[in-house]
Design a binder for these strands. Structure first.
Length: 769
DNA sequence: GTGAAGGGGCTTTTT
DNA sequence: GCCCCTTCAC
């Protein structure tokens, strides 16, 4: 064991402290049992955290293996690791920098056997949990009692985040309430099913690690000894289970004091109460950890004063907070631009046009982001951005790993890695179609249960269950294929290189007939599905490239834990679209906050929740403070939801921003008949959505979802400068120039009334005249 | 057991 | 508007 505490730490090199203000410097240098860094938005906390870690290493106060740093996303973890490495080089190897979930998986994979799990356990995402719960809800006819899959799932998740398991819950619940009794039954069955499938759901990853540490101190002890410095970022968004995990890890062991704990957070940016985040963790930090020191970082190095003024003014309306005021010395900067569209599409068009203008002025697309409250808002934005030929990327929403064909392919891999996982087995049982239906599946499950074997084992005994020859052969064929793949993943000698995941997946997809079935299909969507399978194969290739020794189980872990923000690719040169939640922790030179309307932000669903409106305000605050130079606030008078158009009202939050900070290109008061009213005062549209505003007569354009990949296709439409065209929305215009080639050909068109636009020739709703 | 057609219900945010 | 589930015909 290396020396644990140096009485007189060596002064860190001056390069490490360079450019830090006194507060930041203190946050880097302070040494003690507990440190809370209250870091306002943009106050350089990432820099402080990295330098704090680097200084611990540089002065030899800590070995890399003694450091555990928790970040909010895998991407943030990767960046922090790189930055520390940039300062101290390979002296940083061996640190644990990861998310709560990744760190817990790492611990659980090592220790699973201690409490009845196997190391190859599956991680169930929310879709898997719901699939499991669906069967239970149906089985117990719980829906007639008003227990839907969604609310059972939410309730179980909440309980697990509070470290309440089914047995603990059974002691709290009133057994004479039939609804609660039924819920308890389902909770129990769900937990049992997870355990027998050798699986953890997302919430288990944290909660079970805590149970493990509490039940088996000898398991916890090596971790308590090992991690002498624990740092947690975004502490305001930790839930009770995560809090408890940190408490467990910082407990003293025998002669050793507890690990030194550093947490960084900002209660104004707490936006995850809905998933159990407890702001008290940060507010009561000083009571929890005696001798804690607090450092406050208020100077902002990100945004202009105008943006900060808006942010400060908005957040000041939350009454239950410690006053904090962000400031900068970089100057006022540009005014915030406001825009009110007639419809969501009109709003989106403003966004697209403005992005193009910024781009012409030299701003790279990757410096621009568009935020929204709900994923549903992407549709209109996407349609317009495609048409306007603005390159964009949606973070989160795409859900590659949630697509049926990807889930199928992953289920094949899971069936190999974790034969106990009946959910994965059932999923692949009849995809591709093998003539194994519901009846056969139920029979197999029954056989497994009667004989006390797994579902996977039952497949091996297909011959003994009275199936027809075709069905029996199909089952045996699948079973043999899985055996073949399993043999690949278990190399003959321990030091032989593992067979790449790519080969395993390729074998499974081919020999199962999965790809052949897609190829043979006449469903046009299957072509896209086939491409997705190929995309997944490419992902496995990439995985092996980055991690040549990576095993199948590592691949499954990595893909199970990708967060939306992990998809951000700084080199892509595209505009980033994401929800306000995903935006936390990021920054962009130009930011568009869209849909700033009542019922959307604050969201209608938040109104009845305690603390709901305040949390929505923090969400708005988080969005505003992502912007470095330019901030746009936009909204629409009408919005489509459920295929119906409804009228919307400006968000109350708009009125909280001092009027002189916003320059309205088109204010809410200017849009309706009888325009001229002020934004802030009355919060309704004067005259509603009536009146034939130009934006509203738009013809409907069909934009099928991305699975089909089938958008409008003009084929090889020939266009040359000088040609006249007609556009569905913009009317007639003249082509000014053509750039790009093939599918990326872009036409610059001067429209007679709609101004100048860039259009993707292949997909724009245009005809040549 | 499979596929097409029609009806009901739903969306806040995420690891 | 779309997804998922049920129903019905083969």
């Amino acid at each position: 064991m290396p020396q644990l505490v140096q009485p007189h730490p060596v002064e860190p090199s001056s390069a490490l402290l360079e450019g830090l203000n006194p507060r930041q410097r203190e946050a880097v240098l302070y040494r003690g049992p507990a440190l809370l860094i209250v870091a306002g938005a943009g106050s350089g906390k990432t820099s402080v955290l990295t330098r704090r870690i680097a200084s611990l290493l540089e002065t030899r106060e800590a070995w890399p293996s003694q450091i555990l740093a928790i970040t909010f996303t895998n991407k943030a973890a990767g960046e922090m690791r790189e930055r520390v490495r940039g300062i101290v080089g390979h002296a940083s190897d061996g640190m644990w920098i990861s998310t709560f979930h990744s760190a817990c998986v790492r611990i659980l994979r090592r220790e699973a056997e201690v409490f009845g799990y196997a190391s190859g356990f599956t991680i169930y995402d929310s879709g898997d949990s719901r699939a499991l719960l669906k069967r239970l809800v149906k089985q117990y006819e719980a829906d007639v009692m008003g227990l839907s899959v969604a609310n059972v799932a939410a309730r179980i998740s909440k309980l697990k985040n509070e470290l309440v398991d089914a047995e603990t819950f059974s002691r709290q619940v009133n057994p004479s309430d039939p609804k609660d009794a039924l819920f308890l039954t389902i909770f129990r069955e769900y937990s049992r099913a997870l355990q027998s499938a050798n699986a953890f759901d997302f919430d288990d990853l944290i909660a079970q690690t805590v149970y493990l540490f509490r039940a088996f101190p000898h398991v916890a002890e090596p971790y308590r000894r090992r991690f002498r410095h624990i740092l947690v970022d975004e502490y305001q968004d930790t839930n009770h289970a995560q809090y408890a995990l940190i408490r467990e890890l910082t407990k003293p062991v025998a002669e050793l004091p507890g690990a030194s704990l550093t947490v960084v957070g900002d209660s104004d940016q707490s936006i995850y109460a809905f998933r159990g985040a407890d702001i008290r963790n940060i507010v009561e930090f000083e009571q929890d950890y005696r001798d804690a020191t607090v450092v406050l970082l208020e100077q902002n190095y990100r945004s202009t004063q105008t943006i900060l003024d808006a942010a400060n003014a908005v957040i000041a309306n939350n009454f239950d907070r410690v006053a904090k005021n962000l400031f900068t010395d970089t100057g006022a900067g540009a005014k915030i631009v406001g825009f009110t569209g007639y419809s969501g599409h009109d709003e989106a068009q403003f966004v697209a046009d403005e992005i193009e203008r910024l781009h012409r002025d030299g701003l790279d697309y990757r410096e621009v982001a568009v935020f929204y409250r709900t994923n549903a808002q992407t549709r209109a934005l996407e349609e317009i951005l495609i048409r306007s030929a603005v390159p964009y990327r949606i973070l989160g929403g795409t859900k590659f790993y949630e697509r049926a064909e990807i889930k199928d392919a992953m289920a094949y891999l899971i069936a190999v890695a974790n034969p106990a996982d009946a959910l994965a087995m059932r999923r692949i049982l009849n995809s591709p179609k093998r003539g194994i239906g519901q009846v056969t599946e139920t029979q197999l499950a029954g056989y497994a249960e009667r004989n006390g074997i797994t579902f996977r084992e039952a497949l091996r005994h297909a011959g003994e269950q009275g199936f027809g020859p075709k069905v029996a052969k199909a089952i045996t064929g699948l079973s043999d294929l899985l055996d073949e793949a399993t043999a690949m993943t278990a190399p003959p000698s321990p030091d032989a290189a593992p067979i790449p995941v790519f080969d395993v997946l390729a074998l499974l997809m081919q020999k199962s007939g999965y790809v052949d079935a897609l190829r043979a299909s006449r469903d046009p969507q299957d072509e896209a599905r086939l491409e997705n399978i190929e995309e997944l194969l490419a992902v496995t290739k990439e995985f092996q490239k980055n991690d040549p020794d990576g095993l199948l189980i590592d691949f499954l872990t990595e893909t199970a834990l990708v967060a939306a923000a992990d998809e951000l690719d700084d080199s892509s040169g595209t505009v980033s679209l994401m929800t306000l939640h995903t935006a936390k922790g990021l920054e962009f030179r130009a930011v568009f906050l869209t849909g700033i309307e009542e019922d959307l932000l604050p969201h209608r669903m938040s109104a009845n929740e305690p603390g709901g409106p305040s949390e929505e305000r923090r969400l708005f605050y988080v969005g505003i403070t992502r912007a470095k130079e330019r901030l746009y606030l936009s909204l629409a008078m009408t919005r489509n939801s459920y295929g119906e158009t409804s009228v919307s009202a400006p968000s109350r939050f708009l009125a909280e921003i001092p009027a002189e900070l916003i320059e309205w290109r088109q204010s809410p008061g200017m849009t309706g008949p009888g325009a001229g009213g002020r934004v802030a005062g009355s919060l309704s549209w004067s005259g509603g959505a009536a009146g034939a505003a130009p934006g509203q007569a738009k013809p409907k354009t069909e934009w099928p979802n991305r699975v089909t990949g089938k958008v409008r296709d003009n084929g090889e439409l020939e266009l040359a400068p000088g040609d006249r065209i007609r556009h569905d929305d913009f009317g007639e215009g003249r082509v000014q120039a053509i750039t790009g080639s093939a599918a990326k050909r872009i036409a610059e068109v001067q429209f007679d009334t709609a101004g100048r636009k860039r259009l993707l020739v292949k997909v724009a709703p245009i005809v040549k005249l």
